[in-house]
Write a protein that binds this DNA or RNA. Sequence first.
DNA 1: GTCTATACTTGGATAGAC
DNA 2: GTCTATCCAAGTATAGAC
Lengths: 220, 220
Amino acid sequence: MAKSGASSRLRQPGAEGSTDTRRVLVEAAIETLKADGFAGASARAIAGRAGCNQGLVFYHFGSVVNLLLAALDAVSADRLEHYSAAVDRVTTPTELIDVAAAIFGEDLDAGHVTVLVEMIAGASSTPGLGPEVAARIAPWTQFAQAATQAAFGGSALDSVIPPSTVARGVVALYLGLEMLTHLDGDRAPALELFDRAKELASLFQALSAVPSAAGPKEGS
Amino acid sequence: MAKSGASSRLRQPGAEGSTDTRRVLVEAAIETLKADGFAGASARAIAGRAGCNQGLVFYHFGSVVNLLLAALDAVSADRLEHYSAAVDRVTTPTELIDVAAAIFGEDLDAGHVTVLVEMIAGASSTPGLGPEVAARIAPWTQFAQAATQAAFGGSALDSVIPPSTVARGVVALYLGLEMLTHLDGDRAPALELFDRAKELASLFQALSAVPSAAGPKEGS
DNA sequence: GTCTATACTTGGATAGAC
DNA sequence: GTCTATCCAAGTATAGAC
């Protein structure tokens, strides 16, 4: 937008050729992480996919890992926003799990979570990368905690397990399922798990409706 | 000790210098995966840690990934044997979870599961590696299924979720918790999760004792 | 059969062209 | 300010020494 001075530079048709190089590189970095993993995400591989010179990685981001972190930022922001929108419309535990299952399917198809997994695993190989990645994963746990609290708040689950612990477990399970499913391509067990979790949740829902009123939301 | 044919070859003191080069390389590969991850596990890095020439990686294993797979084999065999021994002495769900928590602590300290995670995540970067890794992870799910069935068999859990699904979920959670804990170094949430799971299990234990006799083991 | 020295390829980073 | 041509380090793999 606002591309001043359209100096008819010859480039690939469709590419604007100047300020959005960063954007193109970030997008290519994401795709490369999905397709070739952290170990395969070299400056050359990324630039090749972006259709530009590999030196641009270093000009625009300073280093490969910095570009990779920008990619993680982009994926994280995009997904968390998407999640928030989807979760906003839920009130009950079973609805939450339904939404989670649907989103899990999306993430699996598009490979969004692969980016997280690759960055977490790849963090071991580069000194100083760990904390950077950790800071970008934290919002996921935070979101999971908010979402579970919104749906399970005041239920039986809430009193038997601290919300932060649940959130951590949910994120861990999400990452683990993504890894295993990505590895062997069989998504049936994961979807089955969501299905059963929903049944268990409805059980909890029924149980927590019985005892002393915890109050159905404020005002009643 | 027992250094046959003392042909006074000069080597590092302590190293026997001949047939166990493979063993030393496998051990070094494991340590390198733990410390530097898949992306950092180059032939040079591993050989350096093993204290031998990097060419030996290719002589003994043909390629780096082959050595890495041998490392995964070794870790997997070692751990699964250890798990079996520990689980053999368990009969109740709460005991199983106690054992699982203890073993999780061990694995975290020693970095055993890091090897799995790195290999799973690294599989994306090398064509054909995925199925090889998948074949080596399958026994873990198998073991988890056997263990949960031994402890939860005939309980309420068994009838609401298929054992294979539970096993998959347990392995996924285990891998995910390892990743997150390894990333930020905070093992408290994971241990808390085991603790709460134990409470829930004892609840299930109590519930499943009430209804129509599913039969305490065969016979009776 | 074991291992080392060397060939060749790919990757990270920058000096300098535009 | 943006990008390309080039440099050097690190990686895989093998030919050949022992």
